[in-house]
Design a binder for these strands. Structure first.
Lengths: 250, 250
DNA sequence: AGTCTCTGTTACACACCGTCACACGATTTA
DNA sequence: TAAATCGTGTGACGGTGTGTAACAGAGACT
């Protein structure tokens, strides 16, 4: 199963460990075939032996934990380009399911780890990924700990807007591929509260619906203000596209 | 400033980069003198140039973020042995202050990073640290997202009990060095709710106060049940002391 | 001792959000 | 076509936790 579907990356025909030095972490995944998952299908489960690292190439994934009474907490949504399973425990810390139809590439830990050992240039990139994940987790803690329902929803919309901003430099449109329940479990709210809050934002003209899962941002400034991030040093202007190169290890 | 105050570690008299290969990550910090901070004093601030990595050797630190209206979110408490500032951004993601009088060792990023490059055996340990931090953050998200006030406080008490458990294998006593406000900002509650909830736990005989900042756990089983972690695969029995060695990179 | 300050506790009214219930539209099934 | 199912929106209602208090205790200081 060493054949590669994606011909543009055909220069890496061999298994990752035999390939020439990759410049980018993502290239490690080019050597393995893509797998497909239907919407709702599980990729791995919390507590499973954590044998693989994944790279999403299409679609959206949700990662979540379940606690007593079946309460679910979605700790993140993962989009194309994101890596999953980097947390270096022997077992997965969370479960992962496809929100939309998903295509991803799976790499066993061993070759992944060996690649990191072998090519030091990859390590800063890897650190940067883990670091971003940590930063995101911290922001989420802030959201869950101290933000109101409205601030949570606004923050979520801004998050998605920024994410799409990467693809569509213009365009104030957001697409919400996940259900209201997913949003609720991500934001620490209920579906009803999410629904009502969105309705309220629409009523105020901050956003405007274009179907159930698409919205236009009519007042970006207002939406940003509603996030409640009136925060220390973070500037209001869009930061430059995320540096994927870690600052250190030098 | 190469002299070392702590004579028991005098074998590492030189700067970390010149020292013999350390077996443990912590040893990197032996070469630098300890600094002292009074209770309430700041160590570094969110947004500061992240030039240093710290190891707490005595006392307790709180790390936190501030958002609009001065709302504060404490993302963690750090005890002796914990490392701070590992997140690999160019700027600190959070601020750090001393809860109690604190002594810590500070290492510039450069020698720290160089040590990681030079001695591959240290990398798994470093990964393990970051990974633990990630796992803790996830648990905290669960707590903040879906747990009731009582479950939050119970979880917090169990956390501290387990932490002290490392030092005192027996003894069902917990010491809360931080104020109720700190607890509240960590648990996403208000001081009043924290206070009320503790009172309730005392009234039910689950814990019993021994001064404002010390409690005895009278019914450990009950307290554990109140945590709401009735969770999938996590066993009820105490896990073996945390592995500090990462499973991989092998 | 007496006073001041700081932290923690308790009380009560209120707000936000969760719970429960049902309606609506879209899609699937009989 | 009718019925069922699912995701979603909206309303009424109530509970958990909040906010504003006042109060109690423990130290620190004169």
């Amino acid at each position: 199963m060493l054949s590669v579907a994606y011909s543009a990356e055909a220069k890496h025909l061999n298994a990752a460990r035999l390939a020439p030095q990759p410049e980018r972490l993502e290239e490690l995944f080019c050597a393995v075939p893509r797998e497909s998952f239907e919407a709702g299908e599980g990729v791995f489960w919390e507590g499973d032996q954590a044998d693989h690292v994944f790279k999403v190439s299409e679609g959206v994934l949700r990662v979540f934990k379940i606690i007593a009474d079946g309460r679910r907490v979605i700790t993140g949504f993962l989009y194309a380009g994101d890596l999953v399973g980097l947390s270096l425990k022997d077992r997965y810390l969370y479960s992962a399911e496809a929100v939309t139809p998903v295509r991803l590439r799976r790499l066993a830990r061993k070759p992944f780890a060996e690649a990191l050992e072998k090519w030091p240039d990859l390590r800063p990139q890897f650190f940067a990924r883990v670091c971003d994940e940590m930063a995101t987790a911290q922001d989420q803690m802030v959201l869950l700990s101290r933000k109101s329902a409205e601030e949570r929803v606004a923050t979520f919309l801004m998050l998605l807007a920024r994410r799409l901003h990467g693809c569509h430099p213009i365009g104030r449109r957001i697409h919400l591929p996940m259900s209201r329940l997913d949003m609720a479990d991500y934001l620490g709210l209920t579906i009803e509260t999410v629904s009502r809050t969105i309705t309220k934002l629409v009523a105020r003209g901050v956003i405007s619906p274009e179907g159930r899962h698409d919205f236009a941002i009519c007042k970006p400034g207002k939406l940003l203000a509603l996030c409640g991030d009136g925060d220390s040093y973070e500037d209001t202007i869009d930061r430059e596209p995320k540096m994927r190169q870690a600052i250190w290890p030098h």
